[in-house]
Simulated assay, not measured.
Amino acid sequence: MDSPSGTGEVHQGGQSGSLEIDNGVQQRFTAGICTLDTTGNYQPSGAFTLYGNSTDLFQPILKAAFFFATRPYSNGTVIQQAVTQGIFVDFTNAPNGSREVTYNIDGGWEYSGKPWGQLIASREMLTSLLIIQDPALVAQNAEREKAFAS
Rank of each mutant, 00 (worst) to 15 (best):
M1D: 06
M1F: 08
G6F: 07
G6H: 01
T7L: 14
G8S: 03
H11N: 15
Q12W: 12
G13A: 00
G14A: 05
G14D: 08
Q15W: 07
G17W: 04
S18D: 12
E20F: 02
I21S: 02
D22I: 07
N23H: 02
G24D: 08
Q26I: 09
Q27A: 03
R28K: 14
R28L: 12
A31G: 06
C34K: 10
C34E: 15
D37Q: 02
D37G: 02
T39P: 05
T39S: 13
N41C: 12
Y42N: 08
Q43A: 08
P44L: 05
G46P: 03
L50S: 00
Y51E: 15
N53R: 07
N53H: 06
T55C: 09
T55F: 00
T55P: 04
D56H: 09
Q59K: 12
I61C: 08
K63H: 13
K63G: 05
K63E: 13
F66L: 14
F66M: 11
F67S: 00
F67R: 03
F67D: 01
F67P: 00
R71P: 10
R71C: 08
P72H: 04
P72V: 01
N75Y: 11
G76M: 03
T77V: 01
V78Q: 07
I79C: 11
Q81H: 12
T84V: 02
I87K: 01
F88I: 00
V89R: 00
F91T: 08
F91I: 07
T92Q: 07
I105R: 12
D106F: 14
D106K: 12
G108A: 01
G108Q: 07
Y111H: 07
P115N: 09
G117Y: 00
Q118N: 13
L119P: 03
I120W: 03
A121C: 09
A121K: 13
A121P: 06
S122H: 14
R123V: 06
R123M: 10
E124L: 03
E124R: 04
L126E: 00
I131H: 05
I132A: 04
I132Q: 09
Q133L: 15
D134L: 07
D134E: 08
D134G: 04
P135W: 04
P135D: 07
P135E: 04
L137T: 01
V138M: 11
V138D: 05
A139W: 10
A139C: 12
A139T: 11
Q140I: 01
N141S: 10
A142T: 06
E143H: 09
